[in-house]
Design a protein around this nucleic acid. Sequence first.
DNA 1: TTTTGAGTTGTTCGA
DNA 2: GTCGAACAACTCAAA
Length: 481
Amino acid sequence: MTSPSLLWFRHDLRLSDHPALAAALAGGRHVLPVFVLDDAAAGRWRYGGAARWWLKGSLASLAADLAQRGAPLMLARGRAETVLPAVAAATGAAEVHAGRLTEPWGREQARRVAEALRDDGRRLQLHTTALLREPDTLASGSGRPYAVYSPFAKAMLAAGEPEAPLSAPERIPGVEVPSGAEALESLDLYPAPGEPDWAEEFGARWTPGEAGAAARLSKFVDKAIGRYATGRNLPGVEGSSGLSPHLRWGEVSPRQAWHAARSAGAVADVDTWLKEILWREFSHHLLFHRPEMPERALRADYERFPFEPDARLLRAWQRGRTGYPIVDAGMRQLWRTGWMHNRVRMIAASLLVKHLLQPWQDGTAWFWDTLVDADLASNSASWQWIAGAGTDAAPYFRVFNPVLQGRKFDPEGVYVRRFVPELARLPDAHLHAPWEAPDAVLRQAGITLGRDYPRPPVLPDEGRARALAALRGLRRRAEAA
DNA sequence: TTTTGAGTTGTTCGA
DNA sequence: GTCGAACAACTCAAA
């Protein structure tokens, strides 16, 4: 019998459209699928709390799907460059197939695994499983990586439609799991011992795993994609695809999402959504070429932004107690459900950085720990964008006004009332700026500011002026230097 | 080669 | 009320 191969699952927890799985099975080989939880490799960017909740569900789903096709899923914990060569030796596998990551730690991890396998005369073969296209295969006319989204997206579109997705193999002949495997329950995922059950509402909202991803994708394509361009901006309406955590863990590939959207027909709004897929690609492109992106501003001058770190302000923002209803609703949605509407992410992030003058890295870290879709590339690129620190940053004068944004995108207060129930009885006209409501209106709504709901620490105009002055200051000093 | 125009997500101000 | 201009500097591609 020919030797079996290993399939090392990384950020591609699915069986359909999986080029590494297809390669592992080629020639009728038996396959041992393995997942390795390697927190030491990820270091600072080990999967956060909410992500670990998701990962546990996704691995359970993957194991069940594999079992149905004839293969086990081996779970292991430790350094991948130790675990994988040992498993390969125990099973006699000559080849290990896996998907590529753009995370700096993931690239280093793959390098070590390849080296360790090579020492034993075995081979790691990497495949494209998480992106439409590898970042090192695309360059601008100048030969440099794209630094601006629009030309990037244009180039991606000009390259033609992604190839059709692969279907899932009907049978995956497995091999026996060697010693060293962990049970899912012992993998240090969620809940960690001694932690309160902060994810109690997650299960009602999310279904981790490939089947859940497929169901959500087809529901979105059937129901909401036709009005996505406007619907996606209204947090009180189910206008988002809700696919972000599924894409993050690779339960659906971007290519599958792309083709499903194309099949919907309706033109304009489909393109709007496909551009979101391309934003994800662009973020990974940036992370690949600028590995410092999660920690440091891509614009050198931005490193001197005069932040005023304040633990109490940061805490108030994290807990949804800023005094700005649309922001507080978003932060509470995040805590309760592991997800925040995209429009509200922008408003909340802008407020933290520009009105509250807190370092964008603190916002990144909180999102990293609380989002089920926390993705190093998208999270850090988006925070840099909103902070004005990225290569393709929002213009410095683009400061979101949390009151205007609330009125514009949650005009009837559906979203705010859902997540900030203490404001539920405020009339629409005052819902997004309670501190401006007349005393009689507040009394009528049963609210005493400062007791039932906070006053904002800085008013919108004042915060805006302060942020613009700080951003202008960067430029003056850059010129003077 | 040089020049020109456009560029995810906003707000304010003045006509 | 509505509308257009202004608010940087820079990247990239097309003319």
